[in-house]
Design a binder for these strands. Sequence first.
DNA 1: CAAAAAAGAGCGAATGTTCGTTCTCGTTTA
DNA 2: TAAACGAGAACGAACATTCGCTCTTTTTTG
Lengths: 236, 236
Amino acid sequence: MVDNILPRPTKHLADEKSDREGGCFVTKLFGKRAQNREVQEARILEAATTCFVRAGFHGASMNDICSEAGMSPGALYRYFPSKESIIETIVAAHRKASAEILDRMSAYDNIIDALVMVGMEHIHQKSATSTGDGVGDANARIFAEIRAEAIRNEAVAAQCELYEGQMREQLLSAISAAKNRGEIDPIGDLGLVAATLAAMGEGVIMRNFPAQGVPVEALEPMFRALAVAILRPVKA
Amino acid sequence: MVDNILPRPTKHLADEKSDREGGCFVTKLFGKRAQNREVQEARILEAATTCFVRAGFHGASMNDICSEAGMSPGALYRYFPSKESIIETIVAAHRKASAEILDRMSAYDNIIDALVMVGMEHIHQKSATSTGDGVGDANARIFAEIRAEAIRNEAVAAQCELYEGQMREQLLSAISAAKNRGEIDPIGDLGLVAATLAAMGEGVIMRNFPAQGVPVEALEPMFRALAVAILRPVKA
DNA sequence: CAAAAAAGAGCGAATGTTCGTTCTCGTTTA
DNA sequence: TAAACGAGAACGAACATTCGCTCTTTTTTG
């Protein structure tokens, strides 16, 4: 899955050569060829995301993706070794983008505001592997697909766990810090409190209210009420 | 060899005959054959549910379902005309079971208690088309699968909408009744409030906390806090 | 009521299609 | 000039579904 950096290896002389000429090595990493590779990979991921949003991971065929990317199967398979690897890349990008939203919590000195920001940013989030001009609810659709896929696909589950483990930790440490400085008085066990907040937030994200005509601003008080109810800020 | 070419024709006298003797009619509806049909259909649905929980709607093949049901494809296809129809039947049963939990809300004179009951009952809910001795989290798994399938499959989306429309109405009328009798002071628009409650509840159900070692009782205060935060009961 | 006919139930091999992937070969690039 | 790129036909496996057939149950007929 990771070794798609050197398609069709024929490894026997490769090491000798890269030892022999260093210029080749630099070209490999930063030259036109390498740049093109990145561009093509991005093109494939974007096309795949479009197809997956439309038909799901299993409903979209490799031919669909090829057509969407304007590429033949032979070409596409030079960049990704399998459909599975495309799915895993997209899942990882999606969950990573979610995790990065949590990084911004530290900019807030108020845990409630921080949580509201996390929720609202997720609502606004665009699919990490598409350039925005597709269906508006692409992110919510992909998210539902990922949750279902994680149940049956171990590799996808591992990708989710990788980033969601980080998210759990960040959430937990933010909450316990707020508790320690006397800002809140959460109901129940902190781990459960964090998990419940995350699960309830996910429920709203998946329901994709903006696509149903609900204005995004209307969701802010909902997130705030949720955070207040579970964390119980103490009066100043 | 050649003369058995016409084995299954001749429907022409059927109507006359069923008019002639009512006994046939009764036999058709309640006789051994009809009973057997129901038993077989249930057997297929249970086997299909097991396979779908294990591998998803698209990951499970008809052969898998046949093996699980101890039945040949030829036999199975006598009871369901397609895989699609099995999926739709299971989806409808699942969503119907959810909707029926809401029916019990009317037994409560307190809207908060009623909502907590709805949440907890969903946590305890077993898949409607299986006889319980399978994986404990079958219901949550199927639910995630349904949500993803509803995005791409119009028929499944319609089944969901049918029952979820009922659920929305029940929730909305319960909330507005409580508001009218001065029991609560909900934040924001009632429709949005109901939708948010449902979405957040779904998030918890899908996360399937009991399967992750969280005791079910621990979830009750979470549901209660959620309901209190969104509906804001007024002090007596 | 017995015999005959029809319909139902079941099996498992066969069918036609779709799909992910690979192969072959011509073209471009460094 | 050798490696990378790319196109598109081809391949083999898997899949949902159907077919031909046998055996059993129900219904009709003489």
